[in-house]
C-alpha cells in the first residue's frame, strides 16, 4: 500500500481497520472504513477515539466521497486523518484536499509526480472550502493553504 499525503498531516498506518457496524464492538479500534452509502453522522459517538476515517471510491465518478469528507470536517469537526482509497484519479487530488481529505492510497501504477502536479495546479479557487484561505483580488477568489 502506497500512501500519498495531500497536505501537512502525516499519514499513519493502522493495524486494524473496521467497518461502521463493527465499530461499536471494537472499543480499542481507532480506524474505520466508511462505506460509500454510510452517513458520516453515524460516527458521532466514536469521534473522540477515532484517529482515521477511510472513505472508499467504488469508482472515481462516485462523488459522494467528497460530501462525506466535508461532513466529517465541517459538521462533525473531525480532527483526525481522512483517507481516500479505491478507484481514484490524480485529477481529483485538489478536490479531495479541499474537501478535507489528508491522504490517498495510490492505486497500482500511479505516478506520484502527477499527483504532486495536480495539487499545485491552480493558483486560486473561486469558492471557499475547508482549507484556510485569504481573498485574492476582488470578488469570490481565494488563495488557500497556510
Amino acid at each position: 500500500m502506497r500512501l500519498f499525503e495531500l497536505g501537512e498531516r502525516i499519514a499513519k498506518v493502522h493495524e486494524s481497520l473496521v467497518t461502521l457496524p463493527e465499530l461499536a464492538e471494537n472499543t480499542d479500534v481507532r480506524a474505520v472504513l466508511l462505506d460509500i452509502a454510510d452517513d458520516p453522522a453515524a460516527l458521532k459517538p466514536y469521534l473522540n477515539r477515532l484517529e482515521l476515517v477511510v472513505l472508499r471510491f467504488p469508482i472515481f465518478r462516485d462523488g459522494r466521497v467528497f460530501t462525506q469528507a466535508r461532513e466529517l470536517r465541517e459538521y462533525l469537526r473531525f480532527s483526525g486523518e481522512i483517507r481516500a482509497e479505491g478507484h481514484v484519479l490524480p485529477d481529483q487530488a485538489a478536490f479531495l484536499k479541499r474537501c478535507g481529505v489528508d491522504s490517498v492510497v495510490l492505486p497500482d501504477g500511479s505516478d506520484p509526480a502527477l499527483w504532486e502536479r495536480q495539487l499545485s495546479r491552480f493558483p486560486v479557487a473561486y469558492q471557499r472550502s475547508v482549507l484556510p484561505s485569504r481573498p485574492v483580488g476582488a470578488g469570490l477568489r481565494v488563495e488557500e493553504g497556510t
Binding site: F66, F95, S129, L140
Partner: peptide, 17 residues
Amino acid sequence: EILRQWSTLHPEFTFLP
C-alpha cells in the same frame, strides 16, 4: 457570474450523480 465562479471546479460538486 457569481454562480459561474462559485461553481467553477467546485471541489465537492464535480462528480454529481
